[in-house]
Design a protein around this nucleic acid. Structure first.
Length: 441
DNA sequence: AACTAGGCT
DNA sequence: GTATAAGCCTAGTTG
């Protein structure tokens, strides 16, 4: 190991005492695996001061709106509790899957479903299955949703605003994943709700401070573009070169109809298939994720691979590489060792194969975003901008930008994100701005 | 600490 | 016959 070079890279990248802790993690974890040397000097090391800057910047929060939501939700949840107790005939702890299971499947005698290690499963898929069999089900679904958002976000975030900065500061962990992604904790700002009316409301509480706007740059289908690059699949390359809607294109191929005749339902299935392929999804998995029968689902996956022979070949080659060398790698050489790829246990081996298939895709996307962060921060510093990089959510970068720098920053992000790394297909980025994270245009 | 559940990309 | 979609983090219950 070339410690002299590491040291000089460290000096170049960050004259900051703070880095010691992070370096320890990098030396212990990532550097232990080979293949990271190049990445370390060119990417992980220069990324450190960028992450520290983002953590220091933090993000502003509209705590009044969250307090108001907490109030409203608290009242609604009380109503739901009472109605649920009425259905059950007595009170119990709705937050206990154990108690809920015994009430649903033993007292009310609903058709018993899937089992977990310790009893009946009462998760969202089971409740969805039971919908219509008893009025308590929809009450439970709503209660669960409100409980999740209230206890994880709405009540927690306002309480952890830093009194000195008035903002919320996350930790971006550089060494916490096996694919090269970042993770975020205390609080996790990479899983802020976005779906549904309520989710939107929570996201709207992430605001720009006075005189600033939020700017978000979001890679479009970066995982599928990476898959196109890795597999060199003719149809995927073609679709992205022509800037087609990839899910519609896939639907057109799999259902064998002209693109103009693809229905929303067909597109939805194709979208699930497209993502499923990246994860090594089976016919059963597709069946569970859609309304298709098992036979239909398996049929679509077979058709997909017939039409996308490049993807099929890539998946086989990746599994083979994992078996032969013991690891897989991203476009830039980041490695993941797959120790169980030759396991004699079929299930363990299958899980290892899915990890092997997914890591080069997810990891290359992570590398691209990291490079973009470094490029953009360097340019922001060079120009002495007041704009701040504040969040990274895997394929999205969020900035807080003063009004007067908005056009400049839009141009900078739109230029640098797509050009962070040259692939066989173009990388496209959607740049949006707005007063908060839930209202970007 | 293990388990169940569920939020995000 | 059995399990079945990658990667994370956090909250609440239970023993």
């Amino acid at each position: 190991m070339d410690y002299v070079a590491i040291e000089s890279a460290a000096k170049y990248a960050c004259a900051d005492a703070d880095v010691t802790g992070r370096l320890a993690g990098l030396f212990e974890g990532e550097l232990r695996e080979q293949g990271l040397w190049q990445l370390f000097a060119e990417m992980e090391m220069p990324l450190i001061p960028v992450l520290l800057d983002m953590e220091r910047n933090g993000v502003a929060l509209n705590k009044e709106s969250l307090w108001a939501m907490s109030q409203t939700l608290g009242e609604r949840m009380k109503e739901l509790e009472d109605q649920i107790y009425d259905c059950a005939g007595h009170s119990f702890n709705i937050n206990s899957p154990k108690q809920l299971g015994s009430i649903l499947f033993e007292e009310i005698k609903l058709p018993g479903g899937r089992r977990t290690k310790s009893g009946y499963s009462t998760d969202a898929a089971v409740l969805e299955w039971l919908k219509g069999t008893h009025p308590v089900i929809e009450l439970l679904v709503e209660y669960r949703q409100l409980m999740k958002l209230k206890s994880t976000y709405i009540d927690v975030l306002p309480a952890i605003i830093n009194p000195k900065t008035g903002r919320v500061h996350t930790s971006f962990n550089q060494t916490g994943t096996s694919t090269g992604r970042l993770s975020s904790s205390d609080p996790n700002l990479q899983n802020i709700p976005i779906r549904g009316e309520l989710g939107q409301q929570v996201r709207k509480a992430f605001i720009a401070s006075d005189g600033f706007l939020l700017l978000s740059g979001d890679y479009s289908q970066i995982d599928l573009r990476v898959m196109a690059h890795l597999s060199q699949d003719a149809r995927l390359l073609d679709a992205f070169h022509n800037d087609e809607d990839i899910h519609t294109a896939t639907a057109s191929q799999v259902f064998d109809v002209p693109a103009a005749e693809v229905t929303p339902d067909m597109r939805r299935v194709a979208k699930t298939v497209n993502f499923g392929v990246i994860y090594g999804m089976s016919g059963y998995g597709l069946e569970q994720a859609t309304t298709l029968s098992r036979e239909e689902a398996s049929g679509f996956i077979n058709t997909y691979f017939e039409k996308h022979s490049g993807v099929k070949a890539y998946i086989e080659a990746t599994k083979s590489q994992a078996r032969d060398r013991g690891y897989v790698e991203t476009v830039l050489g980041r490695r993941r060792y797959i120790s169980e790829i030759n396991s004699s246990n079929g299930q363990v081996r299958a899980a290892a194969e899915r990890m092997a298939i997914n890591m080069p895709v997810q990891g290359t996307a992570a590398d691209i975003v990291k490079l973009a962060m470094i490029d953009i921060k360097r340019e922001m510093d060079r120009q002495g901008l007041k704009a701040k990089m504040i969040l990274q959510v895997h394929d999205e970068l969020v900035f807080e930008v003063p009004q007067e720098e908005l056009d400049l920053m839009k141009g900078l992000v739109a230029e640098m994100m797509p050009n962070a790394l040259r692939l066989s297909v173009p990388l496209t980025v959607e740049v949006k701005t707005g007063p908060n994270w839930g209202e970007l245009n």
